[in-house]
Design a binder for these strands. Structure first.
Ligand SMILES: [Mn+2]
Ligand SMILES: [Mn+2]
Ligand SMILES: [Mn+2]
Ligand SMILES: [Mn+2]
Lengths: 220, 220
DNA sequence: ATAAAATTTTAGACTACCCTAAAAAACTAT
DNA sequence: ATAGTTTTTTAGGGTAGTCTAAAATTTTAT
């Protein structure tokens, strides 16, 4: 029904619109798609024609219910393939995203639902991002940022909000991966950097920039 | 390097050129690609430009070494994904081909080589077709047709030369799947139909048309 | 409130892949 | 050998998705 390019636009609009489902600008889409604003306008007209987005010119866009459903299907496929590559093929979490960008466009529902079962119905991908259900709803996880954790609190790493492979490799080296336990030992007021104890080992230092991109939940 | 469409042409030229690597005609390609001869000519010019085929106008085409290498890569990916779907996801052998037609275009070598290892380096796909190696050579299996088997000889089913899902479903129902043992009990001269004993059970009847599309090897 | 700046859309054009219709070349049959 | 038939190529054109340049609209700043 939707071409590969259309699917990428829908997925991107979903991600850029954020939790509040705000309107997405033409320029924001142009920047992320590595295309020019004029090309984005053309595509927005086509998506509006297909009733996948709400579009009034000069006003930005939002997904329709149908458009959001299709975006979530693409995101579901992307994240399930990432789980497959890490869990079954032994890829590292910093390697799988570019390949999932291709696999996410394989359309078969039968394939993806069997893959889901084969992976034992995972609820999140290797980066801690929730996997939309087959019926098209996005599980909302209410994690908070490691940088907002109070002194001495102990938390569990659940995921990341930055997916650059250099960042992911840094976290692997530091042992800051989903499942790790972190206790905040010290917070430096001037630059908000932290000393943290990972899995009970010797304290290490992380910048606010790093702590801001690590998602955690309170120790259960 | 090559687009999805170009990959499909290369694969098709490989298949149509047969074991003897004969020249493939424009009209044969047009028929199989569901396009018109004029469109095929356009594509042949492009592939020749990229040195993937030998092309002289009005003369038909053959793959270059480079073109054959790329065709074999696509076929390798296709067949490995078919093994994955049948062995790991529980698909039936008559269901996987259309999905593999999409998966075969996912380009990552790393992905396909890890998949190969995950599947324990299979040598043939669910239909008995050999899987090209990572280095780009096609294992040649010298199976013969069940219809050429002599009376009373016992053979093992190795694969099929017809992939229509209706044919595959018929074979599944009959128990004529790769690995089955077949003994030829009777051959009817007038229409070359056969009575065969499958896995030692009661004899069943198959037409020459069916026997012609079943590949077997002598009992070891 | 109005002018300047930024954003967005329109206009016109390009490539990849496909089409129909017509021309060219290759086969086939007498 | 020549005429008819079939196959293949060329000519001209269409859609999807992209571009640059120019026009329209909105936002920002005085
Ligand atoms: Mn990803
Ligand atoms: Mn994509
Ligand atoms: Mn197949
Ligand atoms: Mn294909």
């Amino acid at each position: 029904m939707a071409s590969l390019t259309e699917e990428n636009y829908l997925k991107l609009i979903y991600h850029l619109s954020g939790a509040l489902r705000e309107e997405v600008s033409t320029s924001a889409l142009a920047e992320q798609t590595q295309t020019k604003a004029a090309s984005v306008t053309d595509m927005l007209k086509k998506l509006a024609e297909k009733n996948l987005i709400h579009y009034k010119r000069y006003q930005g866009v939002r997904l329709t219910e149908e458009g959001e459903y299709m975006a979530l299907k693409v995101i579901r496929r992307h994240r399930l393939w990432e789980v497959f590559m890490v869990e079954k093929l032994g890829f590292r979490w910093d390697e799988v995203h570019p390949i999932a960008e291709e696999l996410e466009h394989i359309a078969s529902d039968e394939l993806i639902n069997r893959l889901d079962a084969f992976l034992n119905f995972p609820v999140s991908d290797p980066h801690g991002d929730p996997i939309p259900t087959a019926s098209g709803s996005m599980p909302e996880a209410d994690y908070h940022k490691l940088c907002d954790t109070s002194l001495n609190d102990q938390v569990t790493v659940m995921g990341v909000s930055e997916h650059a492979s250099s960042f992911l490799q840094f976290l692997s080296k530091a042992g800051l991966v989903p499942g790790s336990t972190v206790q905040v030992v010290e917070i430096n007021a001037f630059d908000r950097s932290m000393q943290i104890r990972i899995n009970g080992l010797e304290p290490s230092f992380i910048s606010h920039e790093v702590a801001r991109n690590i998602l955690v939940s309170p120790e259960s």
